[in-house]
Design a binder for these strands. Structure first.
Length: 147
DNA sequence: GCCAACGTTGGC
DNA sequence: GCCAACGTTGGC
């Protein structure tokens, strides 16, 4: 799960304990959240558009998808008039803090490992803010890259 | 701040 | 349904 740390960082999540993952406005990312994220699932927390960008820790899904009501809020920057209460277009999950790594695993570092070369987030032009991670990649990262 | 790579919109 | 124009993301 990607987020710009100047918008919402892992330290904010530590402070809050639990947060709503609102504002995803991409259909593919929405589908991953809505259809595949289940309670108890662990996700990498990724700092994007950052110096450097990379995986900073872990969070856990604690509420499965429900309508992102910020889309109905005219005062929200995430407002989308095409989404309605009757027919919600956007969904979000809640996550809770799990772990912060002692040091960030940068995108550059992820790209240096052959074992991770087919991981979605290292692909050229990959912009999805929510994307699934294969078990083999999780295992490799947890075993070799987390300090 | 630049810009490549995407995604979306809307005219036709 | 095509595709040009535009908007956004996010690495660098």
């Amino acid at each position: 799960m990607k987020c710009e740390p100047n918008v919402y960082s892992i330290d904010d999540l530590i402070k809050d304990g639990v947060t709503q993952w609102e504002g995803v406005r991409n259909y593919q990312a929405r589908n991953f959240m809505r259809d595949r994220m289940k309670i108890g699932d662990i996700a990498f927390f990724y700092h994007s558009n950052s110096k450097p960008s990379g995986i900073i820790g872990l969070c856990e899904v604690c509420k499965e998808s429900y309508p992102d009501y910020f889309a109905w809020d005219e005062s929200s920057k995430y407002c989308d008039p095409k989404s309605s209460k009757e027919n919600p277009r956007w969904f979000m999950v809640d996550v809770k803090f799990k772990q912060k790594f002692r040091s960030l695993i940068s995108l550059k570092e992820l790209k240096e490992h052959e074992a991770l070369s087919d991981m979605m987030v290292v692909q050229k032009g990959s912009r999805l803010s929510i994307n699934p991670v294969e078990k083999k990649h999780v295992d490799y990262i947890m075993e070799n890259l987390v300090s």
